[in-house]
Computed example of a mutant assay.
Amino acid sequence: MNTPWLYPLWIAHRGAGKLAPENTLASFRLGLQHGFRAYECDLKLSRDGQAFLLHDDTLERTSSGQGSPADQDWAALSRLDAGAWHSPPFTAEPLARLEQIAAFCQANGCAINIEIKPCPGEETRTGTVVAREAARLWAGALPPLMSSFKPEALAAARDAAPELPRGLLLDKLWEGWFEAAEALGVVAVITNYWLMDKALIERLHARGWRALVYTVNDAAIAERLIADGIDGIITDAVDQLGPA
């Protein structure tokens, strides 16, 4: 691993974990108040190709909208309430666009892991647009780590902006994952924490890749992973683990 790793160990999940409405600027601001200087967030596209933050394939859970965001233009999505579902203090918090997150991160000296989270059938389009936008918005700054569970989305990101670092997300060690990571030219593999052990960390490091995990909310698990040589820990527990 001769390439320097410039990203912090501790990464706030979707902004400030569960303390604020996920994937919103309000959540990023709260994470910053807890001392975090690295974030993870989920990126989708509107029907008219605007990159914005949302985890689910539908709008109901974390906004006042309904249905698939892929079927709606940004003009409509921008009017949704993405905060009231969480708690009254966040009422009227809007969905966040990628350009807002870029401005926040660069103004505050923060790193970011952008998860490309395409709606079904939107893998290539989402990977392409999000990577191009990220390359433009972070030009001259510490680049975002682009990641996805969808190899086709990550391949599209690679083709659109090969200079951006990439990480393959895994919720299981499916057959061929190692070869897929090689073909995608990744710098990191990011797994569910229970998949990661010292042997896997050493295997990834031997290949020249970094090892990251999601979503660790238990101090004992975090301590074990740190002792084993983990490079990044994504957490919801921003008020209990990591920077303060």
Results as ranks from 00 to 15, higher is better:
194 W>A: 11
151 P>S: 10
77 L>P: 01
64 S>E: 14
131 A>M: 03
141 A>F: 12
82 A>V: 14
23 N>D: 04
62 T>C: 09
133 E>D: 14
150 K>S: 12
203 R>V: 13
32 L>T: 05
239 D>L: 01
20 A>W: 10
137 L>W: 07
207 R>K: 14
144 P>G: 07
146 M>A: 04
28 F>T: 06
23 N>I: 05
236 D>G: 01
29 R>Q: 15
70 A>N: 11
234 I>E: 07
219 A>P: 00
160 A>D: 08
30 L>D: 12
24 T>I: 09
113 N>F: 10
213 V>E: 04
209 W>T: 01
20 A>P: 04
168 L>P: 00
132 R>Y: 01
151 P>Q: 10
151 P>R: 10
90 F>D: 13
12 A>D: 10
244 A>H: 05
83 G>C: 04
28 F>R: 05
185 G>Q: 00
187 V>Y: 02
115 E>T: 01
111 A>K: 07
244 A>T: 10
205 H>N: 13
235 T>Q: 04
232 G>H: 12
188 A>G: 11
2 N>F: 00
189 V>K: 05
213 V>S: 03
39 Y>G: 03
242 G>V: 11
140 G>K: 08
231 D>Y: 09
194 W>V: 13
129 V>F: 04
211 A>M: 08
136 R>S: 11
206 A>I: 05
232 G>Q: 13
126 T>F: 06
111 A>V: 11
116 I>Q: 02
99 E>Y: 01
186 V>M: 02
50 Q>R: 12
151 P>I: 12
228 D>H: 12
40 E>F: 06
150 K>T: 11
159 D>V: 10
86 H>T: 11
44 K>I: 01
162 P>Y: 09
212 L>Q: 13
193 Y>M: 11
195 L>K: 05
139 A>K: 10
168 L>V: 08
188 A>I: 04
63 S>F: 14
78 S>W: 12
15 G>S: 12
32 L>Q: 10
122 E>Y: 10
159 D>H: 13
131 A>E: 10
82 A>C: 15
193 Y>V: 10
26 A>C: 14
147 S>F: 05
50 Q>T: 15
158 R>G: 03
71 D>W: 15
234 I>H: 01
13 H>Y: 01
123 E>H: 08
153 A>N: 02
217 N>Y: 02
98 L>Q: 03
147 S>T: 13
91 T>L: 11
102 A>H: 00
157 A>H: 05
218 D>S: 00
225 L>D: 07
120 P>F: 05
16 A>S: 14
192 N>K: 13
149 F>M: 09
69 P>K: 08
95 L>F: 09
92 A>F: 14
144 P>R: 07
128 T>C: 07
161 A>E: 07
32 L>D: 04
203 R>N: 14
52 F>Q: 10
3 T>F: 00
5 W>L: 07
53 L>A: 09
25 L>M: 15
95 L>K: 07
86 H>C: 11
149 F>H: 03
138 W>M: 08
51 A>E: 03
90 F>H: 15
143 P>W: 11
115 E>V: 01
86 H>M: 12
39 Y>H: 07
82 A>N: 13
152 E>L: 13
60 E>K: 09
212 L>R: 07
7 Y>P: 09
222 A>W: 04
113 N>M: 12
157 A>P: 02
209 W>H: 03
129 V>W: 06
202 E>D: 15
130 V>A: 06
33 Q>L: 08
238 V>L: 05
56 D>E: 06
66 Q>F: 15
135 A>I: 04
29 R>Y: 04
